[in-house]
Amino acid sequence: AFSSEQLARLKREFNENRYLTERRRQQLSSELGLNEAQIKIWFQNKRA
């Protein structure tokens, strides 16, 4: 489960760009304390 802070950040990123570069995913992973797979799957689900 994502914290409300993490979700807000993911939604902001998604609004700016529906697709993440690998580098951006790595940055978000480290900033949010999530693993890259969690972020990747969140974006895939959000696009679906």
Rank of each mutant, 00 (worst) to 15 (best):
8 A>W: 06
4 S>G: 12
31 E>N: 03
33 G>D: 07
36 E>C: 05
25 R>A: 15
37 A>P: 04
28 L>V: 02
17 N>A: 05
43 F>W: 15
3 S>E: 03
44 Q>P: 02
27 Q>K: 09
9 R>G: 07
16 E>P: 01
8 A>F: 05
40 K>H: 15
5 E>N: 06
10 L>I: 02
26 Q>P: 01
33 G>C: 12
27 Q>D: 08
27 Q>T: 09
9 R>L: 07
38 Q>F: 10
44 Q>R: 09
28 L>H: 00
33 G>S: 06
42 W>R: 00
47 R>C: 09
34 L>A: 04
41 I>D: 14
20 L>W: 04
44 Q>V: 07
7 L>M: 06
38 Q>T: 11
7 L>H: 06
13 E>K: 02
8 A>C: 08
1 A>D: 14
43 F>P: 02
2 F>K: 02
1 A>W: 13
27 Q>G: 04
20 L>H: 03
26 Q>L: 12
47 R>S: 08
13 E>P: 01
17 N>T: 06
29 S>W: 03
37 A>Q: 14
13 E>F: 04
18 R>Y: 06
5 E>Q: 08
40 K>N: 14
39 I>E: 00
6 Q>P: 01
21 T>W: 03
32 L>W: 02
33 G>R: 05
16 E>T: 11
39 I>C: 02
11 K>Q: 15
14 F>Y: 10
13 E>L: 03
28 L>N: 00
11 K>A: 14
12 R>K: 13
31 E>L: 06
38 Q>Y: 08
11 K>F: 11
31 E>C: 05
1 A>I: 11
19 Y>R: 06
23 R>I: 14
37 A>T: 14
29 S>F: 03
47 R>A: 13
40 K>C: 11
26 Q>V: 10
42 W>E: 00
35 N>V: 07
10 L>Y: 01
7 L>T: 07
14 F>R: 02
3 S>H: 03
21 T>I: 02
24 R>S: 05
41 I>Q: 14
32 L>E: 01
45 N>G: 07
28 L>T: 01
29 S>N: 01
7 L>Y: 05
10 L>N: 01
38 Q>A: 12
35 N>I: 06
44 Q>K: 09
7 L>E: 13
23 R>P: 09
15 N>S: 12
8 A>G: 06
19 Y>W: 11
16 E>L: 13
40 K>E: 15
19 Y>D: 07
12 R>F: 13
22 E>K: 15
31 E>I: 06
18 R>Q: 13
13 E>Q: 03
15 N>A: 14
18 R>M: 12
5 E>H: 09
4 S>T: 12
43 F>C: 04
24 R>K: 12
16 E>A: 10
35 N>M: 10
36 E>A: 08
24 R>T: 06
14 F>C: 04
22 E>M: 08
39 I>M: 03
19 Y>E: 10
7 L>F: 04
23 R>G: 11
31 E>M: 05
39 I>D: 00
29 S>L: 02
26 Q>E: 08
47 R>E: 10
39 I>H: 00
3 S>W: 03
22 E>P: 15
28 L>K: 01
14 F>G: 01
6 Q>L: 05
19 Y>I: 11
34 L>W: 02
38 Q>G: 03
2 F>R: 00
8 A>E: 14
24 R>E: 08
27 Q>V: 09
24 R>V: 10
17 N>L: 04
20 L>Q: 03
21 T>E: 05
8 A>Q: 10
26 Q>N: 07
39 I>F: 02
10 L>D: 02
36 E>W: 04
2 F>D: 00
16 E>V: 10
9 R>C: 07
14 F>N: 01
33 G>N: 09
24 R>A: 07
11 K>Y: 13
17 N>W: 05
40 K>T: 15
1 A>C: 11
3 S>K: 04
44 Q>S: 09
10 L>P: 01
18 R>D: 06
39 I>V: 10
21 T>V: 03
44 Q>N: 07
24 R>M: 09
16 E>K: 14
42 W>V: 01
30 S>N: 13
8 A>T: 09
32 L>V: 04
45 N>K: 11
33 G>A: 05
44 Q>C: 08
41 I>V: 09
6 Q>I: 11
36 E>K: 05
37 A>G: 09
14 F>W: 11
24 R>Q: 09
26 Q>F: 07
38 Q>E: 14
35 N>D: 14
25 R>E: 07
45 N>Q: 13
18 R>F: 06
43 F>K: 00
35 N>Y: 06
19 Y>N: 09
35 N>P: 15
3 S>V: 03
17 N>M: 04
15 N>F: 09
35 N>F: 07
42 W>N: 00
40 K>S: 15
10 L>Q: 01
32 L>Y: 02
25 R>F: 12
43 F>I: 02
3 S>Y: 03
21 T>S: 12
41 I>R: 12
8 A>K: 10
17 N>Y: 06
24 R>C: 05
23 R>W: 11
1 A>G: 12
35 N>A: 14
21 T>R: 04
40 K>A: 15
24 R>L: 07
26 Q>R: 15
9 R>E: 07
37 A>F: 12
3 S>I: 02
44 Q>I: 09
34 L>Y: 02
29 S>K: 04
20 L>M: 05
44 Q>W: 09
46 K>R: 15
47 R>K: 06
47 R>W: 13
22 E>G: 09
29 S>C: 08
10 L>T: 00
6 Q>K: 04
37 A>D: 15
1 A>Q: 13
45 N>T: 10
36 E>Q: 06
12 R>V: 10
2 F>E: 02
41 I>G: 08
45 N>W: 13
25 R>L: 15
26 Q>K: 14
4 S>H: 12
4 S>E: 14
32 L>S: 02
42 W>A: 02
37 A>H: 13
25 R>C: 15
40 K>R: 12
22 E>C: 07
3 S>N: 11
45 N>Y: 08
11 K>P: 01
16 E>I: 12
9 R>Q: 06
22 E>Y: 08
15 N>D: 13
19 Y>F: 13
46 K>V: 10
41 I>C: 09
16 E>R: 10
38 Q>W: 10
30 S>Y: 13
13 E>N: 01
18 R>C: 08
47 R>T: 09
4 S>M: 10
33 G>T: 04
24 R>H: 06
37 A>V: 12
30 S>P: 01
35 N>L: 09
24 R>G: 05
39 I>L: 07
2 F>T: 02
18 R>S: 11
29 S>A: 15
30 S>G: 08
23 R>K: 13
13 E>H: 04
40 K>Q: 15
1 A>S: 10
33 G>M: 06
26 Q>Y: 09
11 K>G: 10
35 N>C: 06
7 L>G: 03
28 L>Y: 00
34 L>I: 12
31 E>F: 03
46 K>G: 06
36 E>L: 05
18 R>A: 13
18 R>L: 04
32 L>C: 03
23 R>T: 14
31 E>Q: 06
31 E>H: 03
25 R>M: 15
25 R>Y: 13
30 S>K: 14
